[in-house]
């Protein structure tokens, strides 16, 4: 009899896969807005997985930042560009064959690796609340954190440069 958390894991993982599939290949609708909404649902299912891993802060951020802010941005862009329904593209036999081969090969390797993997003996190492996370971020991972700030500055400069109307 599997534990309750195991059942929850399978439920969230199954939902994430289902919504992910509907996001990229929805048989009922080809509208980009529907895809974006399914992406939101995928992200919420992933947040559930984070909670099962005791990463509470990440789960909250996942919902707030990704499902909330980033997806609203996506929807804004889709609506601003006024994207219509995607045309159904004709798939050639070769394309389907090559794609299927790649998917099967990668899936095969991954499944074999996952089956062979040994779970970590000591269980969960860090409780994913804000305090331990912040401590790690400002001690062990301080340097990458600071480099990230430079990266964000570069991204900001770039966005302004590329979108400004007139550059002197």
């Amino acid at each position: 009899m599997p534990a309750f958390t195991d059942l929850l894991f399978y439920a969230f993982a199954g939902l994430a896969l289902l919504f992910g599939f509907l996001c990229v290949a929805n048989p009922f609708s080809r509208s980009p807005v529907t895809s974006a909404m399914f992406l939101v649902l995928t992200i919420i299912a992933l947040a559930g997985l984070f909670i099962l891993l005791h990463a509470f802060f990440l789960a909250a951020v996942q919902i707030l930042v990704y499902a909330g802010a980033v997806m609203v941005l996506f929807l804004f862009v889709i609506m601003l560009l006024d994207l219509k329904e995607e045309d159904r593209r004709k798939m050639r036999g070769f394309t389907i064959g090559a794609g299927a081969l790649a998917v099967v090969a990668i899936a095969g390797i991954l499944i074999r690796a996952v089956i062979a993997a040994q779970p970590l003996a000591q269980g969960i190492l860090v409780e994913g609340e804000t305090k331990p996370l912040g401590k790690l971020l400002f001690t062990q991972y301080l340097l990458p954190f600071e480099v990230m700030s430079l990266l964000l500055l570069v991204a900001m400069v770039g966005v302004i440069l590329l979108s400004k109307k007139e550059i002197k």
């Binding site: 340097l143 990458p144 480099v147 990230m148 430079l150 990266l151 570069v154 991204a155 770039g158």
Partner: peptide, 11 residues
Amino acid sequence: LMFVSLELITV
């Protein structure tokens, strides 16, 4: 650090 600095270059 490798990933972050590579991304700094790429971005």
